[in-house]
């Protein structure tokens, strides 16, 4: 891909990010931070892409560590977010939402 195309993708993605995130209520900011945190674990892909083409012990070691780090970021991030969200109990939530809808 050429650079201009990629910058175009980047700019559009930034707008999507702003739009999607602006709608998140205050109460869910911690899970949100944790969830987006898991998503940037996508750097894991970088390690996967590069390791096959690299040679030499140090390079391979760096990349294995990078892959391990990326995996911690992804798996840990999604799991912690899931645990956190699981604590927002369902029943009262339904009631709160119904009230809000009735009120608006």
């Amino acid at each position: 891909m050429n650079l201009v195309t990629e910058i175009g993708i980047l700019v559009l993605a930034a707008f999507v990010g702003f739009e999607v995130i602006s709608k998140v209520p205050n109460t869910l900011h911690t899970p949100l931070m944790s969830g987006t945190n898991a998503i940037h674990g996508i750097v894991l892909l970088g390690g996967l892409l590069v390791i096959g083409e690299s040679s030499g012990f140090l390079s391979k070691l760096l990349l294995v560590i990078a892959i391990a780090f990326g995996t911690i970021n992804v798996i840990g991030g999604f799991l912690v977010t899931d645990r956190m969200l699981g604590m927002f109990k369902r029943k009262p939530v339904v009631r709160a939402d119904a009230e809000r809808e009735a009120g608006s």
């Binding site: 980047l10 930034a14 940037h40 996508i42």
Partner: peptide, 10 residues
Amino acid sequence: IVAGTIVGAS
């Protein structure tokens, strides 16, 4: 690019 930027924006 996309995932990283979304996280950057959020």
